[in-house]
Design a protein around this nucleic acid. Structure first.
Lengths: 204, 204, 204, 204
DNA sequence: AGATAAGCGAGACGGTACGTCACGTCTTCAC
DNA sequence: GTGAAGACGTGACGTACCGTCTCGCTTATCT
C-alpha cells in the first residue's frame, strides 16, 4: 500500500514548510528504497512518486545523501542498551538484536545504502562517522557497567570492544550474510569474553 | 605521472585482445580513482583518459563494477599469512599490515568503492562475497596453526575469529578512521586472545 | 553568420517551451545542413552547435527526421499560386520559380535530404506524402482556373498535370541538374499544353 | 529461403577474387534490403549475414553506396524500349511496365534507397546521374522513332519528354504511391500527346 | 486589509553518462 | 596474397538524472 501518491493536490501553506509534502517525500523515498533499492533511488524518481516538485526536495535536503540519511533516521528505532547483569548476555543481546533488526526490517537495506553513499559523499561520510561514534559510545556503556560490577578487567577498552562486535555485524550486512546458524553468535560472544585460550568458551 | 595517455595510437593487433589497450584502460581507471574518487569514475571518463573506445571497454568488462573489481585485483598485493609462532603476534601482524596497506596505498580507497558498488550491483556483491570468504579462509590458517601448536583452544572457530578482526578493519576503512594510536591494535588483539576477564590483557 | 551560438546562457523560463532554445536549435540545424550537408547532420552536432542539451531536442522533436522537416518548414516560403491569365505562363511561372527557389536558397538541399530521409523513416515518409499531396492540390488550382476560363479541356486532370511537372522538377533536384538552358522550361511547358503532335509547340 | 548464410566455410582461392564470397555478399545485401530495408543495411549486417569479413567487403566495394548500387545492378532487368508503332502505346507501355516492375519486384525498393543514398554520397550521385541520363537517352529512342514516322512534331525534345514521364514515376516511387487506378496512366499519356487543350484526350 | 514573502507543483533548461551500434582500419592466421 | 575473424578508436544513437531556473498559484505573516 502506498501512502506517498496521495491524489489530493498539495500546495503551499504559506511561507513555511508543508509537513504533508515532507511526509509524502519521505514515504516515497522509503518505498523506492524498499521496492527497487538504491539503484532506483533518484531525486527525479522520488519527486515523481511523491507528486512533489524537485525544487521542494532540494530546498529541504541539499543532496540525495541527505534525503537518504533522513529516511534512515525516520525509519530506525532507538535500540536500548541491554542490561541483563552479565557481560555475555548483554553483548549477545546487543549483537543478536542488531542482526534481527537489520534482517527483519528495511532498515538494514537502507543502512547499507547509507554506508555505500558515504564512500563517495563527504557529508554522508561525516554524518555516518558521527552516528557510528555516538552509537558505539552509547553501547559501550554496557561494557562500563560490567567493569563497574567487577565483572571484567578495568583495562578493557569499552569502545573497542563494541566496535569489534559492530564491525563484524557491518561485514555481515555489507556482504549479505546476516543469516547465521543458531548458537554461532553465542559462541562468538563467549569467545570474546573468555579469550581464545580458554577451552571453556565453546561448551556450556 | 600518467602512463595512460600514451600518444601513440593503439589499434587492433588482430582478432585478439590488445594488451596495450587493457593496460591503458586499467591505468586510466586507477588514476581516476586515486585522483577524483569513485564519483568521477565513469566509463566515459576512463575511455577518454585511456584514449580508448567505449565499446573496447564494454567488450572486456561488462559493467563499471567489473572494471572496478579488476582494477582492485591488479592493484592489490597478495599478503602472505603471517606465521610468527605466537597467535598474538600473528593476529597483530595480520591486522596491522592490513591497516598499513589500506592507509599507504590507493588500494584501501578502491576497496571502499568496491564495497560501495556491491551494495547496489549484484555481480559486484557476489564477487565481493566470494573474495571475502576466500580471504578469510586463507587467513584463518593462522588460527588453525595456533590450534595445531596447542596454543589456543580447539573449539575456537578460526573463520569467525578472523572475520571479527576483519570486520573491525572494514568498519574503520568505511568510516575513514584507519589512523590509530600506537598500541591500540596491540591491546585489541591481546584482549581478543585473553578475553575480557583476564586482567593481563592491557599491561605488558 | 552564425546566430546559433549565442553566448548568453539560455535556461528554463518555467514549465513551457523556451522559444530562444527552439530558435537556436533550428538555426544550428539549418547552418549545419547548409555548411556540411546531411552527412554532418546529427542530433549531437546540432546540440553542440546550438549549446543545447540533447534531451531538449528530443523533448520537442521525436527524431532526426522530425527536426529536419521542421527546419524545412521554417525555411520554405509559401509560393503563391500564379495567375497570369494564360495556362502556359501560369505553368511556366510555377515551375521556373520552383527551380529558381531550389537553386538559390538552401531549401532545395534541405528538401533533398527530407526526401532521402523519407525513404527509410516512416514518419518522414508520411509527412512528405501529405505535404506533396497538399502542395499539388493547391497548385492544381491554376489548372482549374484555366478550365473555368475555358482555356483548356474540362476532362484534363488538374492534379496529374501538376504532378507531371513537379515530378520532373523532383527528378532534376535529386540528380543535381537544376541548371537548365534558357527556353528549355518554356518549351517543355508549351509542349505539355499543345501536345506532342502540335508543330506550334517549339517555335514562337 | 536464405542463400546467403551458407554454412560451409569459404576461404581464399588464391590471389584472386572469390566468386562464392561475392555472391554470398550480394545475396546477403539483397536479402537485408528486402527484409529490413535501408535502415538495417549496414556493412556489419551484410558481413554478419554473409559470413564474410568486413575487409573482404571493403576490398571490393569501397563504400556502402557502391555495394548498394551493385546490388541494384544485379537485380534490375534491362527493359527493352517498346515499339508498338504508335507514340501513345509506346509511352504507355514504357511507363506502365516501369510502375509494374517497381511494384512487383524488390527493385523499386532498392532504387529508392539508391536515390536516397545519392543525396548524401557523391559517388552514388554521380552513378545515379549517369544511369538516369543513359536510361532516358535509350528510352527517348521511342520518341525519335515516332518523329521519324512523322507521328509527332520534329521540334519535340525526346529526352525531355521521357524525363517528364520518368520524373512523374520517380515522384510516385519516392512517396510510395505506385498504385494507380486503371486508366489513369492511359489518360495521362494521351494528355501528354494531345496537349491540354485538346478535348479528345480523355475519351476514346 | 492589502502587501509581501516564501513555499508549492510543474516541468523546461544545459549537461553528463549510460550502454549499443556502425563506421572504416588494422592485424593475425589458415588456406 | 586472399579469406574469415574480430579487435581497435571514433562518434552518434536515444534515455535517465543531475541540479538550477522560472512560472503561476496559494497561504501565512507583517505592516
Amino acid at each position: 500500500m502506498t501512502l506517498a501518491g496521495i491524489s489530493a493536490r498539495r500546495t503551499s501553506i504559506g511561507a513555511q514548510r508543508n509537513p504533508a509534502s515532507e511526509a509524502a517525500i519521505l514515504n516515497a523515498a522509503a518505498e523506492i528504497l524498499s521496492e527497487v533499492g538504491i539503484a532506483g533511488f533518484s531525486i527525479d524518481a522520488v519527486a515523481r512518486r511523491a507528486h512533489a516538485g524537485k525544487p521542494t526536495i532540494y530546498r529541504w535536503w541539499p543532496s540525495r545523501a541527505a534525503l537518504l540519511l533522513d529516511v534512515y533516521h525516520h525509519q530506525k528505532r532507538v535500540e536500548p542498551v541491554p542490561d541483563t547483569g552479565a557481560i555475555e548476555t548483554d553483548l549477545l543481546s546487543f549483537v543478536s538484536s542488531l542482526f534481527e533488526y537489520w534482517r527483519d526490517s528495511h532498515v538494514g537495506a537502507i543502512f547499507r545504502f547509507v554506508i555505500a553513499e558515504a564512500q563517495s559523499d563527504a557529508a554522508t561520510a561525516e554524518a555516518l562517522k558521527i552516528y557510528m561514534t555516538e552509537r558505539i559510545g552509547q553501547t559501550a556503556e554496557l561494557v562500563r557497567h560490567a567493569q563497574a560490577r567487577g565483572d571484567i578487567a578495568a583495562n578493557v577498552d569499552p569502545e573497542m570492544t563494541i566496535e569489534l562486535l559492530a564491525g563484524f555485524a557491518w561485514g555481515r550486512l555489507l556482504t549479505g550474510r546476516l543469516e547465521m546458524e543458531p548458537g554461532q553468535l553465542d559462541r562468538l560472544v563467549r569467545q570474546m569474553c573468555n579469550g581464545l585460550r580458554d577451552g571453556a568458551c565453546g561448551d556450556r
